[in-house]
């Protein structure tokens, strides 16, 4: 008799399961059809870094202090600076990011001493897959100039 009830309850549990899945069957899908639809990228998304656009135009805000280079756990940032011709301090001449080893932790941005706007920021780029290796080696100074040219 106990077995009988067990079998009956078991059967009932099976039919409950079936009723749940069939209800899900008729609900709309929840996936994003990626290449055609995209998700909105949140404001704080941690993409690869880039040099922040100077709001006043002109050269980058970066003072080539190498704080980010020191803060980077993976040592994937190389910064070189040259003396400014029109005043004290340095300006960035080379800013390379080896994206292949970058872990997107954001410690470089936190280390940046430039105020009020930090000299480096996250991009929202995520379509970075490539069949070659050279995508990983990013020349951020060049990128800065390209973006500036595009803006103006």
């Amino acid at each position: 008799m106990k077995t009988f009830w067990e079998v009956l309850l078991g059967l009932k549990s099976l039919f409950t399961g079936l009723s749940i899945t069939i209800r899900e069957f008729f609900k709309p899908t929840i996936t994003t059809h990626y290449p055609r639809q995209t998700e909105t990228i949140p404001a704080r998304f941690r993409g690869h870094i880039q040099l922040t656009q100077n709001p006043d135009g002109g050269a980058s805000l970066c003072i080539a202090c190498k704080s980010c280079e020191r803060a980077c756990p993976s040592a994937c940032i190389i910064v070189e600076g040259v003396k400014k011709t029109d005043g004290p301090g340095k300006t960035v001449s080379e800013f390379r990011l080896d994206f292949g080893t970058c872990s997107l932790c954001g410690l470089c941005i936190e280390a940046c001493p430039v105020k009020p706007v930090k000299a480096i920021e996250f991009t929202k780029r995520y379509n970075l897959a490539s069949t070659t290796n050279d995508y990983a080696d990013m020349d951020l100074v060049q990128r800065y100039k390209d973006l500036q040219a595009k803006k103006s």
Binding site: P42, A43, R44, F45, R46, C105, G106, E110, F122
Partner: peptide, 21 residues
């Protein structure tokens, strides 16, 4: 979680003494 720290899996959200944002 991505909305607050920008990452979906490897959050790295806490800092010594608080949070990154």
């Amino acid at each position: 979680l991505e909305g607050i720290c920008g990452s979906r899996l490897t959050f790295c959200y806490y800092r010594f003494g608080g949070l990154c944002n």
